[in-house]
C-alpha cells in the first residue's frame, strides 16, 4: 500500500513534471544530462517533502528546489567540461504531438538562445516562459522585483532576436 508521502509525491510529479523537465532542458546540454538533472531534482523533492512547511506555495517551493539544483548542477558540469555550453545539433528533444521539422529547428534555436544566457538569466528566462509572475520570479531567484523587470526586458529581446534572426527584429 502506498504511503501518504508517495501519494503526495506522485501528485506533485504529475502536476509539475513538464515544467521541471523543460527547466532541465534549459540547463543541460544533452538530453541524457537533462534526464540526470530531472532525476536529481525529483530526489531532492522526495527527500525534503517532509520538511515542506507550507510557508510558500508548493509550486514556488518545487521551483526553488529545481532552480537551486540546476544551478549547482550547472556549476558541476562546467567543471567537467570547460567548453562553451552549446546544444548539440543532434539533440533529441521530447516530442509532442504534431511535431514537425520546422518546429524542431525553432526549438533548437530557442534552447541555444537560452543556453547563451548567464545562469541567473536562464533561471528568469525559463520562469518567464512558464508565465510565472514577476513576484514569484523575484522570490525564487532572490533578486528584487524591479530588477526582475529590467532583466525580463533584456531576456525577451534576446530570445525574440534569436528566433527572428533578421536585423532589428522584434
Amino acid at each position: 500500500m502506498k504511503s501518504t508521502k508517495e501519494l503526495q509525491f506522485e501528485a506533485l510529479y504529475q502536476s509539475h513534471k513538464d515544467k521541471v523537465y523543460r527547466l532541465c532542458l534549459g540547463f543541460a546540454r544533452e538530453k541524457e544530462l537533462a534526464n540526470d538533472l530531472f532525476q536529481e531534482i525529483l530526489i531532492k523533492i522526495w527527500r525534503h517533502l517532509d520538511s515542506f512547511k507550507g510557508e510558500s506555495d508548493i509550486s514556488t517551493w518545487i521551483y526553488r528546489i529545481a532552480y537551486n539544483t540546476a544551478l549547482t548542477f550547472s556549476a558541476r558540469e562546467k567543471k567537467k567540461e570547460e567548453k562553451k555550453t552549446e546544444i548539440p545539433a543532434n539533440l533529441d528533444l521530447s516530442e509532442p504531438e504534431n511535431y514537425n521539422s520546422e518546429q524542431e529547428i525553432r526549438i533548437q534555436m530557442l534552447y541555444e538562445a537560452i543556453n547563451e544566457l548567464p545562469e541567473l538569466d536562464r533561471v528568469i528566462a525559463t520562469l518567464l516562459l512558464e508565465n510565472t509572475a514577476y513576484k514569484a520570479i523575484a522570490e525564487i531567484s532572490g533578486i528584487s522585483e524591479n530588477y526582475v523587470s529590467v532583466k525580463v526586458n533584456r531576456i525577451k529581446a534576446a530570445l525574440t532576436q534569436k528566433l527572428n534572426p533578421q536585423p532589428h527584429a522584434n
Binding site: E6, F9, E10, Y13, K17, D18, V20, Y21, R22, L25, N35, F38, Q39, L42, I43, W46, R47, L93, S94, P96, Q103, R106, I107, L110, L129, E130, N131, K156, L159, T160, L163, N164, A169, N170
Partner: peptide, 28 residues
Amino acid sequence: QTNFNDIQQLWQSQKTDDFDLRGLIDGL
C-alpha cells in the same frame, strides 16, 4: 515574425518523456 507569446507556446509544447517514477520511489 515570432513574438514572445509564440516563444512561450513553443517552450511549453515540450513534454517530459515517460519516466519510471515507481522505480525511482522504490530506489529512494
